[in-house]
Design a protein around this nucleic acid. Structure first.
Length: 235
DNA sequence: TCATTAACTGTCG
DNA sequence: CGACAGTTAATGA
């Protein structure tokens, strides 16, 4: 089993990495677990009690809730250096969220009690976590606004911009392979609608597609499509 | 290769 | 705009 090493890790916005010296000095680094997930592996089950917090060492994950008719609402995509499970931390009750790897992923994990101890003894870490929560709340608020007010076309464009921010583009295509359904579940619509918007955008030469790969050749032009909403700035 | 899953299209409420 | 049914294309066991 691979043990992800914090000292050689390049995820500089990871909270653990940021405070690795203090954490290591107090001996908490030895209590870290490493978990490897194959693509499509469901490592967080809806309703199950959460075992601490997860930090992505490498890979990519989608976090979602499932509705009554089986429809998924993807809350966020997380990749290198991101935190998973923060909403359920400290709540005591079970956490209604699922997480599955969308690429092969290595996760770092601290149990609840180690984490509690760490946060009480390292104020800098606690403060970092607090600012992270504030940012998350802000994102959550604008996401709510988007789902309620944007048209399907705008939601899809906004989602593609999110993927671009999160994963960037390689050789003209977004550096993540996602199904149309996953785009739909994140945008808050259906896969058919996404397909229609995508083919319309392709006709307008605003995007290029090749199978599952999607590319945005002119980012400025693309952003202008939803500029009037001023929603593209965050989340 | 065959069987399953995903992409896409048309239509209806 | 979303839901359903149906066809075609891609994937993978």
């Amino acid at each position: 089993m691979i043990k992800a090493d914090c000292h050689s890790c390049n995820n500089n916005h990871c909270l653990i990495k940021k405070h690795v010296h203090e954490i290591d000095k107090k001996g908490y680094l030895d209590q870290k677990n490493t978990l490897t997930c194959k693509k499509t592996q469901n490592f967080l089950l809806e309703g199950a009690p959460l075992q601490g917090l997860f930090f992505i060492y490498s890979g990519s994950v989608k976090v979602f809730k499932t509705g009554i008719n089986g429809k998924e609402q993807i809350i966020r995509f997380s990749n290198d250096g991101d935190i998973i499970g923060h909403r359920g931390f400290g709540a005591g009750q079970s956490y209604q969220i699922s997480a599955v790897a969308v690429a092969d992923t290595v996760l770092c994990n601290f149990s609840n009690h180690v984490l509690e101890d760490m946060l009480k003894k390292i104020p800098n870490l606690t403060y970092s976590l607090m600012t992270f929560y504030a940012e998350e709340l802000s994102r959550s608020e604008s996401k709510m606004k988007k789902i309620a007010q944007m048209s399907v076309r705008e939601k899809v464009i906004d989602t593609l911009l999110y993927f671009n921010r999160k994963y960037g583009q390689k050789e003209g295509f977004l550096d993540i392979k996602l199904s149309r359904k996953e785009i739909a579940d994140f945008a808050g619509t259906t896969d058919e609608q996404v397909i229609r918007v995508l083919s319309a955008l392709k006709k307008e030469s605003l995007i290029q597609t090749e199978g599952k790969k999607i590319g945005i050749p002119n980012l400025q032009l693309f952003k202008q499509q939803i500029a009037e909403h001023n929603f593209f700035l965050d989340s």
